[in-house]
Simulated assay, not measured.
Amino acid sequence: MSSASSVNGDGKETALFEQRLSKIGEVRAALGQLSGKTALYCSDASIARYLVARNWDVKKATKMLKKTLKWRSEYRPDEIRWDEIANEAATGKIYRTDYFDKSGRSILVMRPGVQNTKKAKGQIRYLVYCMENAILNLPPDQSQMVWLIDFAGFSLSNISLHVTKLTADVLQGHYPERLGVAILYNAPKIFESFWKMASPILEPKTFNKVKFVYPDRPETNKIMEDLFNMEELESAFGGKNQVTFNINDYAARMREDDNKMPLLWSPENSTLASEPYVMTKDTAQEGSSDLKSEETTSEKREETDSESENKEETESESERGETEAVSRKREETEAISGKSEETEAASEKREETVTDSEKGKENLSCAVEPGEGKGITPADRNGCSSSDP
């Protein structure tokens, strides 16, 4: 590959390009012999994305990529199919548009205001499906996507910090440099408190890709005009396109894409594996000392998050165990209590029967021996009431 074809620069940029190709080779050597989908995934461009995410630190990038390869082998994101996650998509909370931004990037629209499920596992699996689908539909000269987040109808009950953290983990850990920009469109005031809690979860590079846009602020609307063709952009984001989400039409599109996915990941597909690293003017500026310090912070956060996750999992398992034990104990207690109550009820019934029998005898005594009752008040009659004969 010629460095001159990748970046129009001087000898310094050419040297930097060659140095980065060398680092890509180091990561590849550290990974060892690859085969199947793993080999397809680890193209020069893919390895470069992990190096960029870790500021071209070979050791850190290799560690990060190995985690993704393990995750992909277990989670199998490329094998998720529409019918498996269709219920998550019913309201259009996440969908890929049929148009691209001016740079040719895939666009994922997200509408947290129409969240329709509660389980984090299903929500993340649908997000992964959407990420894989967006990548599948990228043009050959593009590797990133755009997130358009619409806050219409939003309330804090629509999102959780836990799901947000899982989303950040998936995006930053397994899809590095896939997000080009995230537009948070017309976020309400109530979102500010959540953003203060959620923003520290994001790595600096991801945080810097988040843009807040408000329809009543011309300076932020310019962001939309610079990024999108306003004729294609949906009216919900200030564009002129009046299209609305239709689940039936979208399902048909996704099923067509599902048929394309195995072809992309077939061992014979040399296009995926041979995706080259291209150094653009923007990537030529990467590697500054300030980014280095940011990456160190990100790595520390990653280690802290990992420890926290392990702790949460342990605590969660412990809590579930305790809950189950308490539940079993309660059931046993209730069972014993139930038997006890039944026994007590039977005992009380017998006592009532005995008491009624005794009362009958006493009443009979009062009735057949009236003479003994003379001068005796009702209280002194030992069970004979004033109405007794």
Rank of each mutant, 00 (worst) to 15 (best):
R54G: 06
T38F: 03
E74S: 10
T62L: 07
Q33A: 14
T62K: 06
A61W: 12
K37V: 13
A48W: 08
W56P: 13
K37M: 02
G36M: 09
V58R: 02
K59D: 12
S73G: 03
T62V: 06
L69W: 02
R49S: 13
K70H: 10
R72L: 05
A48R: 08
S35D: 13
K67D: 13
R54A: 04
S43H: 06
A45P: 02
C42D: 05
K37C: 01
K59C: 02
K60H: 02
P77Y: 07
R72I: 08
L65E: 05
M64R: 12
K59A: 13
K67G: 08
D57G: 11
I47K: 07
A48Q: 11
Q33T: 15
K67A: 14
Y50I: 10
R54Q: 06
A45V: 05
G36A: 08
A53H: 13
S35G: 07
A45K: 11
Y75E: 09
V52P: 00
M64D: 01
R72F: 12
G36V: 10
P77R: 01
K67F: 09
C42F: 04
D57F: 08
A61K: 04
L40F: 00
K63D: 14
I47T: 08
T38G: 02
Y41F: 14
L51K: 08
W71L: 11
G36Q: 07
L51V: 07
C42L: 09
W71V: 04
K63P: 00
A45D: 12
A39D: 13
L31P: 02
T62W: 08
K70W: 04
D44E: 14
R54P: 05
C42H: 02
R54F: 04
T68Y: 06
A39K: 15
W71F: 15
K63S: 13
S43R: 07
V52Q: 14
T62Y: 10
S35F: 04
Y41G: 06
I47Y: 11
M64F: 12
Y41M: 14
P77S: 12
K60R: 14
R76K: 15
I47M: 09
L40M: 10
A53N: 13
K70G: 00
A53I: 10
T62D: 03
L40R: 02
K66A: 04
L31K: 04
A53M: 09
D57M: 08
K63F: 13
L40W: 01
L69F: 04
R76W: 00
T38V: 09
